[in-house]
């Protein structure tokens, strides 16, 4: 990760520059002391009005806040918070949030996947057995919309009116576990159906080509050691046990922040 700013700022005064960094993780100070946890930052940033949080940055490497294509502002806060728990990260070790997974999911849901364009979606509808697979009337996009509303309502009821994004990390984790174990009742479908799609899409966003908006700066690929889609390993295939040292590359090249519109 490149380091654009090596001077650690004071906690309070640094908020906006940190927010700026959130928009462009490649500028996060890699040597900064960990006095300001990513978790607290996320909560603080989420609490700010959206218009203030990101466009206020003046860093030269900043990029404009990406327009959402599917989620509402509230839904997006849920996705940011939930994916940040599913694959946690910080400034030195990016997780789902730093890698742009919410951007990825937002774009996927407004596209052919979100609309289930390739799926057979004719009735009649029946629950079926586990072996018969997905039998919900909801497309993935509809599943998210309904589930997020349901989970936020569930959280508000139990946590003094707070939606999921404002819960403590521990409480957020517990909600995710409860979703996965079907302990939360959603109106139209089992909670686990939503959890499994959310977790699948989170992994996809973390590990797919950066041109889709996630895996920003190859964060996911760097974590595991995948050098990206490369054309030729004729020489390397028999260099048994040797590390492969070329830096990651994506389908749009070495710049892991480029997205395809």
């Amino acid at each position: 990760m490149t380091t654009a700013n090596k001077s650690p700022g004071a906690a309070a005064g640094n908020l906006l520059s940190r927010a700026c960094a959130a928009a462009s993780p490649s500028t996060w100070p890699s040597g900064a002391p960990d006095f300001f946890s990513r978790r607290r930052f996320v909560q603080a940033a989420l609490a700010l009005p959206a218009v203030l949080a990101l466009p206020a940055c003046s860093n030269e490497t900043q990029r404009p806040a990406l327009a959402r294509t599917f989620f509402s502002a509230d839904e997006y806060r849920f996705i940011q918070a939930a994916t940040a728990r599913l694959i946690p990260g910080d400034d030195k070790d990016p997780g789902a949030l730093e890698a742009g997974v919410p951007v990825f999911i937002d774009r996927q849901l407004s596209g052919p996947y979100g609309r289930a364009d390739r799926w057979y979606m004719e009735g009649p509808w029946a629950a079926g057995s586990d072996q018969q697979g997905y039998q919900l009337e909801e497309t993935p996009a509809q599943l998210y919309r309904k589930a997020i509303a349901g989970v936020d309502a569930y959280c508000r009821e139990r946590h003094d009116g707070k939606p999921y994004a404002e819960l403590s990390p521990e409480d957020q984790d517990q909600v995710l576990h409860d979703l996965d174990e079907n302990k939360i009742e959603l109106e139209d479908f089992p909670a686990q159906a939503f959890f499994s799609v959310l977790w699948q899409n989170t992994q996809e966003g973390f590990l797919s080509d950066p041109m889709y908006g996630g895996n920003r700066d190859f964060a996911g690929w760097k974590l595991i050691g995948f050098p990206g889609p490369r054309y030729n390993y004729v020489d390397e295939i028999t260099r048994y046990g040797d590390p492969y040292t070329m830096p990651p590359v994506g389908l749009l090249g070495r710049d892991g922040t480029r997205m395809r519109s």
Partner: peptide, 22 residues
């Protein structure tokens, strides 16, 4: 793409087959 062509599936004859949606 299942939207254009798919099949329905069940394990045993006493079940109702449901479409393979994806």
């Amino acid at each position: 793409a299942p939207v254009r062509e798919t099949l329905s599936f069940r394990n045993t004859r006493d079940q109702t087959a449901l479409p393979m949606r994806n």
